[in-house]
Amino acid sequence: MTISPCSAELPGTLGEAMPFLCEGAVITLQSTLGGSLLAIAIALLVGLMAMSGHAWVRGVARVYMEFFRGTSVLVQLFWIFYAMPILTGFQLDKSFAGILALGLNLGAYGSEVVRGAVQSVPQGQREAAIALNFSPYHRMRYVILPQAFVGMIPPMNNLLIELLKATSLLSVITVADLTYQGRLLVNSGSDQLIVFALLLLIYFLFSYLITLIMRFVEGRAARMVGRGGPGSGRRKDRRWSRRPVSPAETPSVEGAR
């Protein structure tokens, strides 16, 4: 008979903690998913805006990026949840405020990734698309972005893991995520060593899950633009071990410029 990892029938502290931690894990996954969708949307929009021909569009993108990369997520979270309501008279729901703060923050880092990847597509591709009379939109949509996409994935993987880690901060504004549930268990007398070890382990598994998903996506994306057939894609996957991208800058992409 197999017992679900969330079962209360597990022995000792495990049975006490796991049902609660599983509830929290669901909230953590939801926040990560919501935050990453928002972050990716912002990253694409702002990343493309940062390369616009209009100086004022570039300026808006620049200000956004510097602003959200210049302060910490925690301050942004507090500001959106506690300070903004006083200024605007509009109180956001706590999970929504959390997802918004995460999305805005990681979106700013992501837009740097998008910009770097788009600029590292060889100039000849752009020129060829112009020669074939592609409109600027079609040039971006069918020629540049699909190729840039492959290069975006390894740094995006790092950012998504940063986002997963940052969801733990939502516990501070009482969103009942994994970290919050863990602290609740500790406060109600569970063995703290075991509870914190479980927390770390679950976060680690989620990080690993993100890496697996992103490797799969990268393999697909690489084959779609004809880089590496079956097999060669997999060899390449194994080679990119997860290198941390500096949260302040993205050196690997900066270097490509």
């Binding site: 880690k165 733990s168 970290t179 976060y203």
Partner: peptide, 12 residues
């Protein structure tokens, strides 16, 4: 492992 888990939980 340290890099894949949140700083906040490590602080706890």
């Amino acid at each position: 492992f340290v890099r894949s888990t949140p700083l906040l939980v490590q602080l706890f």
